[in-house]
Computed example of a mutant assay.
Amino acid sequence: MPISPNFTSVLYKDWEINFLQCYPNGNLKYTELCNLFQLTAAAHSELGGISFSDMQEFHQAWVLSKMLVEVHKLPKWKDKVTVKTWIKSLENSRSVRCLELYLGEEKVVGCETFWAVFNTQTRRPESLALPSDQFEKYPEASATHNSFSKINIQNEPDCRETRFTTIAKRQVALSDLDIVNHMNSVKYLEWCLDTINPKDLILGKLKSFEMNYLKELSLSDQATIAQNESVITINKDGKTCFALSFVV
Rank of each mutant, 00 (worst) to 15 (best):
D221N: 02
C192S: 13
Q222W: 11
K199R: 12
T195S: 13
L174M: 15
L214W: 11
A226P: 07
S185V: 13
D178S: 02
L193D: 05
P198G: 01
V180A: 13
K215D: 12
D221I: 01
Y213K: 08
S175M: 07
A223K: 02
L193P: 05
K207M: 12
N181G: 03
E210V: 06
S208M: 09
C192E: 09
E190M: 08
I179E: 09
L177M: 10
S175I: 07
M211L: 11
E210N: 04
A223E: 03
I179F: 07
N228G: 07
K215H: 14
I179R: 10
Y188L: 00
N212Q: 09
G204A: 12
L174E: 14
S185I: 09
V180L: 05
L189W: 02
V186Q: 13
E190P: 08
N212K: 00
V186K: 02
L177E: 02
L214R: 12
Q222E: 10
H182I: 03
S218E: 09
N197L: 13
Y188W: 00
L189I: 05
W191C: 10
D221V: 01
E216G: 02
L189M: 11
L193I: 12
L203E: 15
K187C: 04
L217F: 03
I202F: 00
D178P: 07
L214K: 15
D176E: 01
A226W: 07
L177W: 02
D194V: 08
E216D: 03
L201T: 09
S218Q: 10
Y213F: 14
H182C: 06
K207P: 04
L203P: 14
D194W: 11
L214C: 08
N181I: 00
K207E: 09
L177S: 05
D178L: 01
D221A: 03
I179K: 02
I196P: 08
V186E: 11
L217H: 04
F209P: 10
I225R: 07
S220A: 14
D221M: 02
N181V: 00
I196T: 13
L206I: 13
K199G: 12
D178F: 01
L203I: 10
Q227A: 13
N212A: 14
I225H: 05
